[in-house]
């Protein structure tokens, strides 16, 4: 309800900028490099199946000059409301949160969730314009669709040569697979 500018159909934007404690930027850079090679942390994040895309970026210069602290910019495109998204993160991804946002001056930790939500609220900025290429689709819709589409093509190719019984069975399998959430 609060941040109408951050919603577009099923998608919600979250943009956070936080000051990074001294030397923690080195830890973050190492973390980023590691995560590029080992997909572990991303995998946990993605298991929630609510994020389309998200990114972390370390900013050294703002407004053309170095500030006292580097800043961590986070932007995410996700589904569902702000409250349940942040709660879900605290519930299932606490270590990752510490690893990334633990770098921030004033980091409150993930428990209680209320403290974390208040901290996010203080550090987030509302989008003045937010756009999505497919606003009515959730991450799950898309994952299901990307899984289904090649199956449709496969059946379309094989169907002309199938007898009705075989087609019926293949059709049942296709619809079952299409309905199943990935």
């Amino acid at each position: 309800m609060k941040r109408a500018g951050n919603r577009r159909g099923q998608a919600t934007a979250l943009t956070i900028l936080t000051p990074v404690r001294p030397r923690w930027h080195l830890w973050l850079r190492a973390w980023f490099a590691l995560a590029r090679v080992l997909p572990l942390q991303r995998w946990t994040l993605l298991r929630l199946q609510r994020i389309h895309f998200a990114r972390f970026a370390l900013v050294s210069r703002l407004d053309g000059r170095r500030l006292h602290s580097r800043h961590l910019l986070f932007e995410s495109n996700f589904n569902g409301n702000w409250h349940s998204y942040l709660e879900a993160f605290c519930q299932v991804f606490p270590k990752g949160m510490w690893g990334l946002w633990g770098s921030a001056w004033g980091w409150p930790g993930v428990a209680p969730v209320k403290g974390f939500k208040d901290w996010v609220e203080r550090n987030e900025f509302e989008a003045s314009h937010y756009w999505s290429a497919y606003p009515e689709a959730t991450t799950r819709d898309i994952l299901a669709a990307l899984d289904t589409e090649p199956r449709i093509r496969a059946l379309a190719q094989a169907a002309p040569d199938m007898d009705p019984e075989r087609f019926e069975a293949a059709w049942a399998d296709l619809v079952s697979a299409a309905v199943r959430a990935p």
Binding site: N79, G80, N81, S84, T138, R140, A144, R180, A181, P182
Partner: peptide, 17 residues
Amino acid sequence: EVVQTQWCNDGDAFGLG
């Protein structure tokens, strides 16, 4: 409100679009 809006009026939480 979460039960009403996210679980009752919508199906995404259950993979039902």
